[in-house]
Amino acid sequence: MSIDFEIPTEAKAIREKVRKFVHDECIPAEKELDTKLAEVLGPLRKKARAQGLWCPFVPKEYGGMGLGPLANALVQMELGESMLGALSMNTQGPDDASMMTILAHGTEYQKEKFLKPLLNGEKRICFSMTEKAAGADATGMQTTAVKDGNENYILNGEKWFSSSASVADMALVMAKTDPNAPRHKQYSTFIVELPNPGYRIKRNVANMAIEGPHDDVIHGGHSEIEIKDLKVPADNLLGGEGNGFNMGQHRLAYGRLRHGMHNVAKAQRALDMAAAHVTKRSTFGQLLADRQAVQFMLADCASELYIGRLMLLHIAYKAEKGLDIRQENSIAKIFHAHMVHKVIDTAIQLHGALGFSQDTPLAKWYPSALAAAGRRPRRGAQVEDR
């Protein structure tokens, strides 16, 4: 199958517009994050919406930009350069994939009540699928949902690493509705309004990441959840009984791609920082940039980034054509996780002690890159619900 890598003119224009916004608005705004996040994010979102930069993947009739897979990939590969990039345009995980799920499978009632405030940026949503005992095996979930007459479901169980639950106004919760059905038809998805006494956040799971004052909102804390006698109206069942697994897999597929897109952007910023540093830093009377070993390190990173971009463009191309991308998506998930770890690690080395400090964003990026490269691909563990 021949592949056309020519990017349409309108997609190029959108990419340039987003790139300018990220560099002119988002990256400078990162320096103001010692103040209240609302004082930084509110004006940033207002500027983005004024420029028509809002919910890139959402159809125009729902208030989004209506971008297809290719144009959205180009946009996401710019937004990931800044920790405020995706948030500024209401395309952050895990909200984005949940919006797409409700958009595709929600009833008119659900779209009006739950999707509309999400699209407006008024509310946040988390995704509660993973459980301690099940890990990456979504069919190992033990949380149950039993119908109480015709009006409600009663949910009981636990969830693990539910990203952004601590800042969410609602949750998509997967639970077993029919233990006797075929394996992939046992599960259903429910929209749960928060806070709710039946959905209790036991704790945010501490990890090796360097935490800032707004990390829950910006990066999404990872919560351990107790679900006890959680009453959910039948009207909040999303997509019908037995369809939770398939919807969840489709949802996670986009989340994996978005991770890859943002990792490309983050790696590009790290490489740019490293290149800028070595061209002005001298040791023993010679620029670092003139040392062959340093040139090899930069060239290796540039090669990895080139492969990563081509991989995402190929997947976006196939998605545009409505072709199956499951195999490529799995390959990309692994490759981009290792790629971003390698580039950030190299950038830290080339910065020397400065890279180890928190005077640059490299040290803060490193733990998340290490988690992605070390835990997900090798063990197949579901690190977070994105």
Rank of each mutant, 00 (worst) to 15 (best):
A50I: 00
A11D: 12
H338C: 15
A145R: 00
N120L: 12
S166P: 11
R256K: 11
E61W: 03
L37G: 07
Y317E: 14
L305D: 10
V343K: 01
A299L: 15
Y62T: 05
K123A: 10
H351Q: 08
V232F: 13
K228G: 03
Y366A: 00
I154M: 04
I191R: 10
K113S: 05
S368I: 03
A136E: 10
K12N: 13
F245V: 06
L238Y: 00
L87D: 14
S166R: 12
I307Y: 08
W54V: 10
A267V: 14
A86H: 11
A270V: 07
F57V: 09
K113R: 13
P233D: 10
I125Q: 01
V343H: 00
E193G: 05
Q110L: 02
P117Q: 05
E112H: 04
L362H: 01
A181K: 00
I334Q: 10
A206L: 05
K60D: 15
D169K: 03
L118A: 08
H336E: 04
R291I: 15
A347W: 02
Q186K: 07
H259R: 07
R269I: 08
W54C: 07
R258C: 09
L323A: 15
D215Q: 13
Y306D: 15
T189P: 00
D215Y: 08
L44C: 03
G239M: 01
Y306A: 13
N152K: 01
G85K: 04
I307Q: 14
A168E: 06
M141P: 01
Q249T: 12
R251D: 08
A363K: 04
D169A: 05
Q249F: 15
T91H: 12
K60H: 10
M311E: 14
A332T: 09
P43A: 10
E30Y: 01
L74E: 02
M339C: 06
S98E: 13
E61H: 07
V294K: 02
D359Q: 09
A381P: 06
G220D: 11
G221D: 11
H314D: 15
L37I: 13
E81T: 12
V40D: 01
L313Q: 12
G322Q: 06
E193Q: 09
K280T: 15
M65G: 13
Y199F: 15
T130Y: 06
C55I: 04
M89E: 11
I14D: 12
A133N: 08
G157T: 04
M208C: 13
G380E: 14
G244N: 03
A289E: 13
K132F: 05
E320N: 14
T35G: 10
T144C: 09
A50R: 00
K333P: 07
K36G: 00
M170G: 12
A134M: 04
F245G: 00
P367A: 05
D345C: 02
K280R: 11
H351P: 05
Q382W: 03
A369S: 13
Q51T: 03
P94V: 12
L230K: 02
H341Y: 08
I331Y: 14
S330F: 05
S163K: 01
I218S: 07
